[in-house]
Design a protein around this nucleic acid. Structure first.
Length: 806
RNA sequence: GCUGGUGUGGCGGAAUGGCAGACGCACGGGACUUAAAAUCCCGAGGAUGAAAGUCCGUGUGGGUUCGACUCCCACCACCAGCACCA
């Protein structure tokens, strides 16, 4: 009889939910804690293949750790505020409130169909007032501690979603949500001072256990760079000093080669020295042209240098008093460093291109061929080339000169060491309806007034008019009786902030809330936070690694500093789930032609088969192309597992199987810890083949086998266990392997001649070299003759290599 | 361009200094069957050979080593991230 997955899986799924089989216990008196986290569900529709790939290893780990005697916290929730949910709701013409309510029910029901052992009593949803109460509370703390500020500036704007976006949300000049081009717009924006945390975030990246490519992506995004900041005096055409320009450089060694200085078009000095600039009209025209160029435009004509000279101004190079012209150009970014650079065309390709376009002379200061392109840092540092045209540094190797020139500028009082970061402050508001309202009131008398903590949560008002509008004003601005309010300080009429927080707000602290999801006094009880501590293993996609995970580090660092949480690191280990690819090798999505739903696989083959199949296809962190090919091997395996119950003979562990059983325990225990499910599954297949060859399994062997397999295939194993043993598998504990049973008396030893395999012979374990050679020469004369052997390399119980003369 | 990762049969993939291709799919042969499906057993990297065997073989070329998919150097291809970051 084959395994009847339809009825059996349903039975167990209902039982687990009804009996709350997977509840985490706060402050468990005896069991140590283990916190497994799978990333929030995005509430925008059904679960997809990525969830099958992502959730199962986390579920297997949680089930495995429970058997090992841990008190496991394995929760789930919905990331329901923000653009993804709102856009999906608008597309379907459903009010986001209703959309999210239905969406949460859908993903939770579907989770149960995947057999996921979540503690459903801890389910949270970012758009619930009980939850966003504390998101707003965290914002108030950020504001109170000077980590949130509002500023007018040129920011990323998505004309399609009609909202401001953060840098993280507009990587590559494209909107993260809709994929459309992002433009630059001047707006009043809330920023969080994430840049201040750059160094701490880098430390977090160093500490977390995570794949190297993900760590590099984060380091790259933070973009730490060490260099010098140097002050240049600025003069007008009457040689009168009118100011100073601070530049940032990582190549101080080229300072004698400066032939011009470039400011970002937005640089503040331009407006300040308006009267001194002879060609201000032209300058203004250039600024207007570049200011509103989209990031996409800037990237697309990367190599084309544009700019505008500031007539009537010049700076003086402090090391040699050379007069140097000043330009504006948009290849210099206002947001990075000081927004001003010293240009050395001989040794920087961008400066080289600009000098060519504007007919600016060049001065070579480091050895090399600068005739067709710049000799850049990477090359001259690698060669440690010699200095030239650099006064007392001429002839010095460049690496030494770098140090000496830095010291010289410091001694002169014009230079200082400086570290810059690419990462910017986090622009934190969206002109959309579906998000957390800011707990902030604007009063003409008192300015920006934070709401009192006791007035939280500030409920998002319901309205029918929630669509974004072309002007980019928040839909909340039209809910006038909500907007107009009284100033909490002076009682005069005031108005509320009408922008809302980005979808990343709610996801930047949610793992903390799971520790105490129903607390209405604090974001979570401090002692409970202490008990559950850092997330032991955080699983989920890798696409948010430079957004969500950095935001998470930032907020937890902040909360730790103000004493709101007891731990600095949110996560100890982060595993990035690979993608399921379609037959084009692209990420499988609902829209792709052959997008297969996990529900379809479950319907056809059952949950356990779907769980095993998708993870037998490849490693957790690897991208794997989806195929039904091979699933017959999985269903055949499950049928064989099912038939084990008809092969039970005897009670204890048999001597025939003790080696294989212990080997299986060891392999499964290690592989589950590392989430290497594919090799783990193959170990089960090998064991089952052995049992079928021997045509029996003892009761005890079956008991242990079922426990080992339960984390991966929970339904079939629960059912067989109940049938054979009359009790519940969840009450069992993880079997422990014993190394002593893994040692076999006789081993198969490969014999090589000159490093080439000749024969595999069976010999006693720990055989001496003498005895071994005797056996080889006497029993296997065809391998080689004793006289030819010049040298023997014998690695006991592993290999023997005979070296013979040729 | 920079950074990181990956490269193994017809396919998905094992093996991280010691028997390359575990496990599974697809494939071939056989058993069972009136037949098919399912199931079970056997085979299988390539070349050559009747066979035993021999030679070749983990992107390419070099190196280290008794021994290299594994370590080192150079190059190629693909994937991902960043991209005028001074």
């Amino acid at each position: 009889m084959n395994y009847d997955f339809r009825n059996i899986e349903k039975k167990w799924q209902e039982k687990w939910v009804k009996e709350k089989s997977f509840q985490a216990i706060d402050f468990h008196p005896t069991k140590p804690k283990y916190y497994v986290l799978y990333e929030f569900y995005n509430i925008s529709g059904n679960l997809h293949m990525g969830h099958l790939k992502g959730t199962i290893p986390a579920d297997a780990l949680a089930r495995f750790k429970r058997f090992q005697g841990y008190n496991v916290l394995f929760p789930i929730g919905g990331d329901a505020f923000g653009l993804p949910a709102e856009n999906a709701a608008i597309k379907k013409g459903i009010n986001p409130h209703d959309f999210v309510r239905n969406g949460m029910k859908t993903v939770l029901d579907q989770s149960k169909m995947l057999g996921l052992s979540f503690d459903y009593d801890r389910t949270i949803c970012t758009s619930d007032p009980e939850y966003y109460h504390w998101t707003q509370w965290i914002f108030l703390q950020l504001l109170k501690h000077g980590k949130a500020y509002k500023k007018k500036g040129v920011v990323n704007f998505c004309p399609n979603c009609q909202t401001v976006l953060s840098n993280e949300d507009s990587q590559g000049g494209k909107c993260d949500r809709c994929g459309g081009d992002v433009v630059q717009k001047e707006r009043e924006v809330w920023f969080l001072k994430m840049k201040e945390y750059s160094e701490k975030l880098l430390e977090n990246v160093d500490r977390i256990q995570m794949a190297e490519n993900l760590k590099e992506a984060q380091r790259n995004w933070i973009g730490k760079s060490e260099g010098m900041q140097v002050a240049f005096d600025l003069f007008d055409d009457k040689d009168e000093k009118v100011g100073q320009i601070e530049i940032f450089t990582t190549c101080i060694e080229t300072i004698y080669g400066i032939t011009f200085v470039v400011l970002a078009p937005e640089h503040e000095l331009v407006d300040k020295l308006k009267d001194k600039i002879k060609n201000f009209d032209e300058v203004e025209k250039y600024r207007q042209k570049t200011a509103l160029r989209s990031e996409f435009d800037r990237i697309s004509d990367l190599k084309e240098k544009t700019g505008c000279k500031l007539e009537g101004l010049y700076v003086v190079n402090p090391v040699n008093n050379a007069k140097v012209p000043v330009f504006l150009a948009d290849f210099v970014l206002a947001s990075y460093g000081t927004g001003a650079v010293m240009a050395v065309p001989s040794h920087d390709q961008r400066d080289f291109d600009f000098a060519k376009a504007f007919g600016i002379p060049m001065i070579q200061v480091i050895d090399g061929d600068c005739s067709t392109c710049a000799v850049e840092k990477k090359e001259y540092l690698a060669k440690n080339s010699k200095m030239m045209n650099s006064a007392e540094f001429d002839g010095m190797p460049v690496r030494e000169a770098k140090k000496k020139i830095a010291e010289k500028t410091i001694a002169m009082g014009v230079g200082k060491r400086q570290i810059n970061y690419k990462m910017q402050d986090w622009s934190f508001n969206r002109q959309r309806y579906w998000g957390e309202p800011f707990p902030v009131i604007f009063c003409d008398h008192c300015g920006t007034v934070p709401l009192d903590e006791k007035d939280l949560p500030l409920i998002l008002p319901e309205t029918d008019d929630y669509l974004p509008n072309a002007k980019g004003d928040s839909p909340l601005s039209k809910v006038t009786d909500w907007v107009n309010c009284k100033c909490p300080k002076c009682g005069r009429p005031a108005r509320r902030e009408t922008d809302t927080m980005p979808n990343w707000a709610g996801s930047s602290w949610y793992w903390l809330r799971y520790c105490d999801p129903h607390n209405d006094k604090a974001l979570a009880d401090f002692e409970k936070l202490k008990y559950w501590g850092s997330v032991d293993c955080y699983t989920g996609g890798t696409e948010h690694i430079t957004r969500h995970v950095l935001y998470a580090f930032f907020w937890q660092n902040f909360l730790y500093e103000i004493g709101a949480v007891p731990t600095r690191d949110p996560f100890i280990r982060k595993m990035g789930s690979g993608l399921i690819l379609d037959d084009q090798g692209k990420k499988m999505s609902k829209s792709s032609a052959n997008g297969v739903s996990p529900l379809e696989v479950i319907e056809k083959y059952g949950t356990d088969a779907a769980r095993l199949h998708v993870h037998f296809l490849g490693g957790y962190e690897d991208n794997t192309p989806w195929t039904y090919d091979g699933i017959s091997g999985i269903t055949a395996f499950l049928d064989k597992v099912w038939s084990l119950q008809d092969m039970v003979k005897g009670d204890g562990v048999s001597k025939e199987h003790i080696f294989e059983l212990n080997r299986l325990m060891k392999k499964v225990t290690e592989d589950l810890e590392d989430l290497k499910l594919n090799t783990c599954i193959s170990a089960f297949m090998i064991f089952v083949k052995k049992i079928r060859d021997d045509k029996f399994i003892t009761k005890e062997e079956l008991r242990q086998f079922l426990i080992l397999l339960n984390p991966l295939a929970p339904h079939i194993t629960s059912e067989i266990f109940e049938r054979v043993f009359g009790s519940q598998i969840l009450d069992e504990t993880w079997p422990k392997f014993d190394e002593k049973f893994l040692i076999e008396d006789s081993i198969n030893l490969p014999v090589q001649v000159n490093g080439k395999l000749k024969q595999v012979i069976s010999v006693a374990r720990d055989i001496s070299q003498e005895e071994l050679l005797k056996i080889i020469y006497e029993k296997y004369p065809e391998i080689c003759s004793e006289d030819d052997v010049k040298k023997v390399i014998h690695i006991p119980n592993k290999i023997v290599n005979l070296i013979v003369a040729k």
